[in-house]
Design a protein around this nucleic acid. Structure first.
Lengths: 230, 230
DNA sequence: CGACCATTTGATATGGATCAAGCGATGTGG
DNA sequence: CCACATCGCTTGATCCATATCAAATGGTCG
């Protein structure tokens, strides 16, 4: 019942990954490589929409510089942020015909876009690309599942979890500079800005973190934060 | 940089889908077909574990009869249910090396299992299978995203949303028989059993539903339930 | 019938939302 | 360079939806 094509094994060549700036085996980052090679560069100013919900899922995206939020506005006006995407990350990997979430630039942002149809055609001919399309989607699935678990925790646990997650993704010797506002954080965590602010203040009083400015956060006691991860 | 294999198009043959009991084009349900043809049948009694979290993701599963819940127990002892899987549905489609959630039979359940490595090898040779592996994972991603949005709603909205979702998946002329307990529903919706029970009672008082027995639920006014979907 | 477990119902407590005010950073024009 | 306006953040007071605790009811199986 299955049509067969010659089995594909091994790695045939090398390529340069512009996001990690290293030469890597083609295939190890085949999809990333495709985006780097074939992607069109686009720039979006702060708060500008990249795509809207219900628009056709015509492209895959990769953040080069800046930060992106995906979100959905509920009927009652509240906004749920689905994800933050930082430089090097691929987003827009949906299999449905239409986007479920909207995407906006949080700050001035540069992204690469590749036509979805091109990538799918490529995946049909190249099992390495197909495998990676699947793997990336699986990673996104894991991320959303972790986000789901986050929403069943208390406010302080959510904030601690968010800080540890961001610290892993934003490198910085003297703490990290968050690109997103308190409202963005609140809408990601399913809390209000007031609650987020109160929890940050509490963590600062407990010396778990320091807040030199409101966007810059230093994790002073990661163990204390991890103890909050219910 | 990409190794190429002959492009694969069209549908070459037909197959019988045992879950839908219809002859379908191979490829249209290629992955399902593989599971039906190659899957090993297994039976699990009510409340028996199918796999545990942190166990290696060695298999893909398809429910034949019964119902399955996937869940994670948090440090504080609370349980978050990630999904309910009903007959005909594929689960265990994770790309990571280890399961993030555990899976248990809700009632006496029959499932088909296929080795993950076999399916991945097949996907490497057959782009139709690869595409479907991706598509199914994408559907699961959508499902989890909808679940995430559910958790940002009020208690009555969550319950209404759950009932409409289940009604679409469980056919039954005179209402549906839910396989899961109130505790399962509560842990899926991030509520307590008391709150779930109260919301059901309220919906019954408002004539939106009827509760002939506690497991059997009749949707009497779907429009009223839909009005609750914030 | 009686025991057991799941569900419902009732009374009270509480975490986070809401409403409201104050504070601090950033930018603009004089 | 400073006064002032603006916007985002923090802090305080109160309220409410849902959790928690407790008891009654109902359904199932020996």
């Amino acid at each position: 019942m299955l049509t067969e094509t010659p089995f594909q094994s091994g790695i045939s060549t090398l390529s340069f990954d512009h996001s990690t700036r290293r030469v890597v085996p083609a295939g190890a980052h085949a999809l990333d490589g495709v985006i780097e090679l074939m992607g069109a560069s686009m720039s979006f100013r702060r708060n500008v929409e990249i795509y809207g919900e219900q628009e056709p899922t015509d492209y895959f995206y990769k953040v080069v510089k800046g930060a992106v939020r995906t979100y959905k506005v509920l009927i009652d006006g509240r906004r749920q942020i689905g994800a933050f995407h930082l430089p090097g990350e691929v987003f827009g990997l949906e299999t449905g015909e239409e986007h479920i979430f909207s995407a906006e630039a949080i700050v001035d942002t540069k992204i690469l876009v590749v036509k979805r149809s091109v990538m799918i055609a490529l995946a049909a001919r190249n099992s390495e690309v197909a495998h990676q399309l699947w793997t990336l989607t699986g990673c996104e699935l894991q991320r959303v599942q972790r986000h789901l678990l986050l929403l069943s925790k208390t406010a302080s646990e959510r904030v601690a979890c968010f800080l540890l997650e961001m610290a892993e993704r934003i490198q910085g010797s003297d703490g990290m500079r968050l690109p997103m506002s308190r409202q963005d954080i609140a809408d990601y965590l399913g809390l209000t800005i007031e609650t987020v602010s109160r929890m940050l203040t509490r963590l600062e009083k407990e010396s778990a973190i320091a807040l030199p400015t409101c966007k810059r956060i230093v994790l002073r006691d990661r163990a204390a934060l991890r103890r909050l991860l219910a």
